[in-house]
Structure formats: structure tokens, C-alpha cells
């Protein structure tokens, strides 16, 4: 694959303003791009013989509310080229007001459940996803728990739990109070 500087030139040439930058941390390259163009970048990385990343290992997201970044959320794709054994990370940045980006299902079917998970936990929507519903939390759940403004303890969801009363309960309670 091309070295970091050349890769930046090639991608800048192809994606113009949508391309943000390439960073490197402990040997792992990360391509930063605006969310709306991520699909064409992924398609290039998959089909272009210079890259040939044939395997999508992981999709996740990070909420940059406290950390700072190019936007509020970044959706992270971990790609793998199984023939030349190389990995690369793609970070697609999406805004807080309109957290939407195209779905990667046409390229890799593994994106299906992982995008649902990102939608469930971060509230980022994927355009063109056939079944974008919650996967971990129940359908009536209103929040997106992995966002940084959602507290660890939850927002009173437990208070609404139904109290189960059994007929035997009162008897046991009486005995306890008696002792």
C-alpha cells in the first residue's frame, strides 16, 4: 500500500473537501472523512487493487462530546486486507444536529447488526439500512446510552419497574415483622 503521505495526496485528490486528514498512532493509520462520503471511500478501499481491503472487521462509534474532534460523533470502521495482512481504520465524522451517514450493507453484510448496534447505543442513523431498529435495548427505550451525556446510572428507568406482588408475600412479611 501507499505510504502515509502519498495516500493523503491520492485521497485528497479524489474526495476534495470531504477528506479531512490521515493520522497515525503506534503504526495504525486512520483516515478521517466526512460522514456523507464514507460509502465511496469504503468502496474505493474495497475495490481498488492498490488497497483491496476485503474484510470489514468492526464498526463502532465514539461520542466526542468531552474529548473534542472534527464533529460530535465519529463512526469507526476497522478494515482488513487478508491477502497482504494490513489493517486500516476509517473514521467518518457526523454532526450532532443531523447524525446520518450511508449504510455499508451493500459492501459487507456484517454491517447490518453492527450498524443497528451503533444506532441503538449512539442514535446515529444509517441511510439505506433495511431494518434500522434497536438491537440491544427494548423498542420503547428512548435514550442512546453510550452517548456521553447519558449518565452511568441511567435516567430513572429502574423506578418504572413494575413491583411484583405475590400472594405469599404478605405472610412472609408478617412473620418477619413478628420476629
Amino acid at each position: 500500500m501507499l505510504p502515509k503521505d502519498q495516500l493523503a495526496v491520492v485521497l485528497k485528490d479524489k474526495f476534495q473537501d470531504s477528506f479531512i486528514e490521515i493520522t497515525e498512532f503506534h503504526g495504525m493509520l486512520t483516515i478521517h472523512i466526512r460522514g456523507e462520503e464514507v460509502m465511496s471511500l469504503l468502496r474505493t478501499l474495497k475495490t481498488d487493487p492498490r488497497f483491496a481491503f476485503n474484510f470489514l472487521a468492526n464498526i463502532t462509534a465514539v461520542d466526542h462530546l468531552e474529548m473534542g474532534g472534527h464533529a460530535r460523533f465519529s463512526v469507526v470502521y476497522h478494515l482488513l486486507n487478508q491477502h497482504e495482512i494490513r489493517r486500516i481504520v476509517v473514521r467518518a465524522w457526523v454532526d450532532e444536529e443531523n447524525p446520518r451517514l450511508p449504510s455499508a450493507i451493500p459492501l459487507w453484510k456484517t454491517a447490518d447488526w453492527q450498524e443497528r448496534e451503533v444506532f441503538d447505543l449512539f442514535g446515529i442513523e444509517f441511510e439505506g439500512h433495511p431494518n434500522l431498529t434497536r438491537i440491544m435495548n427494548p423498542d420503547y427505550f428512548q435514550y442512546h446510552p453510550l452517548r456521553k451525556d447519558y449518565p452511568l446510572q441511567g435516567r430513572g428507568e429502574r423506578d418504572n419497574f413494575k413491583v411484583v406482588k405475590r400472594s405469599i408475600g404478605s405472610k412472609w412479611q408478617d412473620r418477619r415483622s413478628f420476629e
Binding site: 468492526n58 461520542d63 468531552e66 476497522h78 453484510k109 447488526w113 453492527q114
Partner: peptide, 15 residues
């Protein structure tokens, strides 16, 4: 800041 597990169970089960 964020810990994500790449869960083989989830991804294998999606097939």
C-alpha cells in the same frame, strides 16, 4: 474514553 469489544459471537450470529 471508550472501550469497544469486537464480539465474535455477535458477528458470527448475524449470519
Amino acid at each position: 474514553y471508550r472501550v469497544r469489544t469486537r464480539p465474535p459471537s455477535l458477528i458470527n450470529y448475524s449470519a
